[in-house]
């Protein structure tokens, strides 16, 4: 039986398409960054589907933030490691 609700992947595609005009007006380098954010949201499609949010874009934004935060945390660890190596060298 066909489902009435679009799949979560379709939802994300629709939301991404809805920002088409916004994306078009961005600089090429910013377009790439925006695409990367949407790619990051795709890492959590299963969780977004399970969340069944009325406004799926809210969940996608949080998913983007989550990936950004992981990246920040990863970089922080690296920076701290580099710092301590520098301090050791000094």
């Amino acid at each position: 039986m066909g489902r009435t609700l679009p799949s979560i992947t379709q939802s994300l595609n629709e939301e991404q398409a809805a920002f088409g005009r916004f994306r078009r007006a961005l600089r090429r380098s910013d377009q790439t960054a925006l695409d990367e954010l949407f790619t990051a949201a795709r890492q959590h499609l299963a969780a977004a589907a399970y969340a069944a949010n009325l406004l799926p874009m809210e969940t996608f934004l949080l998913a983007m933030l989550l990936e950004e935060h992981k990246e920040v945390a990863r970089l922080r660890v690296q920076v701290e490691a580099l710092q301590s190596r520098l301090l050791d060298d000094v």
């Binding site: 066909g2 489902r3 009435t4 609700l5 679009p6 939802s11 009325l54 406004l55 799926p56």
Partner: peptide, 9 residues
């Protein structure tokens, strides 16, 4: 199978 709730929201 047309009454997709998301546009309604």
């Amino acid at each position: 199978n047309r009454a997709n709730p998301l546009p309604v929201v």
